[in-house]
Amino acid sequence: LRVARHLAASVEAATVNPEISWQHAKAALSKASRVGIIREAAAEAAYNAGHFAEALIEFRAARRMRGIKEYWPLMADCERACGRPMKAIEMAGDPLVKNLDHASRVEMRIVAAGARMDMGNLDAALATLQCPDLTVTSVEPWSARIRYAYADVLEQMGRPQEALEWFHRAAAVDADMLTDSDQRIRKLEGKSSDLDTEDGYLYDDLEDLDDAEDFEKE
């Protein structure tokens, strides 16, 4: 009964307070570590709370106990978060990836691109995301996520106008607001506006300078 209560509390707190969710999941885990669904809940709670080393342990256990292949991208992301981007890239090339469902394959591509960004290989990160899924017409959550990831790489590469376009494309299919595309758009549009304003001031200054020179000639 106590395990069930902790599990229910973990689920309830997941979107409100990930750390509290993780604490409840740990409490349930301490009482029922041999139950696959408990290991799964603990893995997800640890991941959402940013405890990636613990999440990796629990994902491995849950995958072993329950045989769920779709944990693979999350495990790779944990490797990346733990400072092992090369391991994440190796996992992306594992034959197992071909047997994942479509959403998980896209997620694996996003993780691999992120790992390449971590290693400073921005061109490789961008190339990793350049696939049919990037432009396909879909409102599935993975569509917003891959477009967002693509925009993020473009911004990191110093290509803000292209990044802005792709953040808009991500926002257009992000009905569940899984990304902060709107915030990134406002930030980039604000920078663009500031630049336009500065250019305007510069233009006014040049006009004033021309007027002054004409006045001196007279």
Results as ranks from 00 to 15, higher is better:
Glu19Asp: 13
Ile20Val: 15
Ser21Leu: 05
His24Ile: 06
Ala25Cys: 04
Ala28Asn: 11
Leu29Phe: 04
Ser30Leu: 09
Gly36Thr: 08
Ile38Ala: 12
Glu40Met: 04
Glu40Pro: 00
Glu40Asp: 08
Ala42Tyr: 01
Ala43Thr: 03
Ala43Asp: 06
Glu44Phe: 07
Glu44Gly: 01
Ala45Glu: 10
Tyr47Asp: 00
Tyr47Phe: 15
Ala49Lys: 07
Ala49Ile: 03
Gly50Cys: 06
His51Asn: 11
Phe52Trp: 12
Ala53Asp: 14
Ile57Gly: 06
Glu58Ile: 01
Ala62Gly: 04
Met65Lys: 02
Gly67Asp: 14
Gly67Thr: 12
Ile68Tyr: 11
Ile68Thr: 13
Lys69Cys: 00
Glu70Ala: 08
Trp72Thr: 01
Trp72Gln: 00
Leu74Thr: 04
Ala76Ile: 09
Ala76Met: 11
Asp77Gln: 11
Asp77Phe: 10
Glu79Trp: 14
Glu79Lys: 15
Ala81Phe: 12
Ala81Pro: 03
Cys82Pro: 00
Gly83Glu: 06
Pro85Thr: 03
Lys87Ile: 13
Lys87Cys: 04
Ala88Asn: 05
Ala92Lys: 05
Ala92Asn: 06
Asp94His: 10
Pro95Glu: 02
Leu96Gln: 01
Val97Ser: 00
Lys98Tyr: 05
Lys98Pro: 00
Asn99Tyr: 15
Leu100Glu: 07
Asp101Gln: 10
Arg105Met: 10
Val106Gly: 06
Val106His: 07
Val106Arg: 06
Glu107Phe: 13
Glu107Val: 00
Met108Ser: 11
Arg109Ala: 15
Val111Ala: 08
Val111Cys: 09
Ala112Leu: 02
Ala113Met: 07
Gly114Met: 05
Ala115Lys: 04
Ala115Phe: 02
